[in-house]
Design a protein around this nucleic acid. Structure first.
Lengths: 229, 229
DNA sequence: ACCTGAACACCGTTCAAGT
DNA sequence: ACCTGAACACCGTTCAAGT
């Protein structure tokens, strides 16, 4: 804008490589990091210590870097979290043998999403919070919408239904994961009430059943809608 | 346990009243606060500035008190938030003319809960986070469960359905409120895309419709379940 | 291209002590 | 019964400067 050709700025830019820096300082430092390195390190902290412990300062320390260095790769923490959410959710891409009936496909997508969220500690809460902020998580909505549209529903109905279903999925799995680490903290206190509680809403099997039931209610609602338009 | 009668401890306890303190210091300080005062002040900050600004330090300042004083009323912030969640949710007690059909009553309960959450800024997010932690929000679950049981469903089915419905409600209203303040921040940028976006998922009316649609899917799923057991 | 150093403006919580 | 004062152990983010 001011007449200076931006392209010329880097003409004699000296690129300090890792080895050059090591030679100068005599200190064979860690490799400098890429955006991808940062995201992967963050996912590791998330899974090992949970969302509350995923701080910029801790992340920086795990990469042997100053906290301020992270802001070269991501403009702020929220953007980093959105990136993590997208990476977690990307694992839910099911090869949903396209010959499935639409309702079975919806159930498969929902189950795949749940599995993906469960592979990372606090995964549901992370995705949930970034989804609520209007960032990321667009992909699962699109895939659910597509599956529902196969049932002959119009675009808006399908979208509304898939967003509703996603809210259920995120809420359910958040709850589920919260309970997991609550249990792992061993609030043993009342053996009896713990058992009773467990019988009602605990146990991996029971959680999976409750999840399927919720998805089924949704699908059932859609089917009823199709039956009497 | 050690033989000392606990009842005798307070026998000659001197109670410093507000006026006594004022007389001594010559400083007519604010009235000392009750647990209820603290909760009400917190609700005011929540509604005026939002959940991220509801810090213990800010709350203390609004009460003309040191942050540490709050810990006499609540053991920690989480407990305070749970109390706020309960207070917000208590406003959803609808006088659901008991002559309503069960499905209408479920819809009324859901709508009442949404209205209650909307009366406070970030209300849904607050209730959602404490619910995910297993604190509070038990009341709405109970009322929804009761309504569903009137439809002839067994206790576990009713409970699972009501928890699922609650997850949808919390997720939907969180999203809705997030959008509200996103809009109020006036990210005017693209007038055009804003309009287009608005047509699809914006507007109070559209949000209310999408909400009702989601609830209807649930109820429809239950009805279908009743039709073919 | 990627990072350091230092600072700014905050957090929640504890605890002895005061009135 | 309710609060102060002071401290502890943290946060996210910015920015000039370095290599």
């Amino acid at each position: 804008m001011n007449g200076v050709h931006l392209n010329s700025v880097h003409l004699n830019d000296v690129h300090y490589t890792e080895t050059m820096a090591a030679m100068e300082t005599g200190n064979p430092r860690q490799a400098r990091h890429s955006r991808d390195d940062v995201a992967e390190a963050a996912l590791r902290i998330l899974d090992d210590y949970g969302l509350p412990d995923l701080t910029m300062r801790r992340l920086a320390a795990s990469l042997d870097v100053q906290p301020s260095a992270l802001y070269w790769h991501f403009p702020n923490k929220q953007t980093l979290l959105a990136e993590l959410a997208d990476r977690i959710v990307a694992r839910s891409r099911t090869e949903h043998s396209d010959d499935l009936e639409w309702s079975a496909r919806v159930r498969a997508e929902a189950a795949g999403l749940r599995d993906a969220l469960l592979t990372f500690r606090d995964g549901a809460e992370l995705v949930s919070s970034t989804f609520a902020l209007g960032l990321g998580a667009a992909d699962p909505v699109d895939r659910l919408t597509e599956a529902i549209e196969l049932g002959g529903f119009d675009a808006e109905t399908a979208r509304r239904a898939s967003v509703a279903l996603l809210h259920f999925v995120l809420g359910h799995v958040s709850h589920e994961q919260q309970r997991l680490q609550y249990d792992s903290l061993g609030v043993v206190a009342d053996e009896v009430s713990a058992r009773a509680d467990d019988a009602v809403l605990g146990g991996r099997q029971a959680q999976a059943e409750a999840f399927d039931f919720g998805v089924m209610l949704f699908v059932g609602g859609l089917q009823r809608l199709a039956a009497r338009p």
